[in-house]
Simulated scan of single mutants.
Amino acid sequence: MAAAGIAVTVGGGPIAVASDDEVVLGTTVPLTGAHKRSGTDTHNRYELAIRRINERGGFDVDGKRYRLTACYYGDNSHPLKAQELIGRLIYEDGVKFILGPYHSVQNRAVLATVKRNRVPMVDAHSIAQKQDNRRNGYAFAVAATPDQYFMPAREFAAAISEGFGKAANDLRIAIATQDDAFSQQVRAGVLSDVRRLGTTCVIDDQLPENFADMSVTLEKIKALKPDLFLVSGHESTAISAMSQI
């Protein structure tokens, strides 16, 4: 069998025609623009999954083995472009299975298209709940909702608190979140669990978009010494936060 073929298209053009033992997956990724770094990572992760599945002989449907191949269009980090290109994948390229684009805004933009055309889409990225329209029956999530992102860390900290000579309700939590729908729902989940677990939130900071310095928050951390520090944002936020911490 031939290896999976990859069609990475930024400006347009035909995709590779799949053989009768291949299933073509289509998506858009931000190969340029504000989300270029995350788009590249998304492309690489999809490719890793496809390669691993094909290395194991693909997958079985009613006794027949199929391999995966993928077509990517670059959406320039723009939701309307993502919507246009998902339409192209369906109408012009004949793709019958969609992988969710990177970023919740792009996902929201394409949901109506996959619903209208009854094409299944797998959301590989968490989507802000107010944008969640998966009840249409054609979009399927494989990630936790934003409010659940830090739940295991919070519950684990509460569970082991006695080992540090503290009761669970004596734990002090600090959070720093960006001001976007996704990150703010992460924050809402943290604050909900603070109430549920009886812990205390001693720092609740908002990080500006594309921030490069969190020294103000870190000075508060040094002064107040919380037991758990949670930071929510996108990839550039995480990199900046980790390097400064």
Rank of each mutant, 00 (worst) to 15 (best):
L99S: 11
T113A: 11
A112S: 00
K166Q: 08
G74T: 08
A2C: 11
A168H: 10
K220I: 06
I203R: 08
V110N: 10
L207E: 12
A49C: 11
E84Q: 15
Y66I: 14
L191I: 13
G33M: 04
A34E: 04
I203V: 00
A82I: 05
L207G: 07
A82G: 02
T113F: 09
F140G: 07
S192K: 04
T28A: 06
T9Y: 02
Q244D: 04
V10I: 14
E92S: 15
R154A: 12
G87R: 10
L85P: 08
G11Y: 13
K64D: 07
I98T: 02
Q185T: 03
L207F: 05
D205Y: 09
I53N: 01
G74Y: 01
N76R: 08
N54P: 14
V95Y: 02
E92V: 13
L230C: 11
D75I: 01
A82P: 03
T145C: 09
N117C: 09
R52G: 08
S77D: 03
L111C: 08
G94P: 13
D132N: 11
S232C: 14
Y149P: 03
G189Y: 01
F164L: 03
F150M: 04
D205I: 02
L228W: 04
A7I: 13
K166H: 00
H103V: 00
E22D: 13
C201F: 11
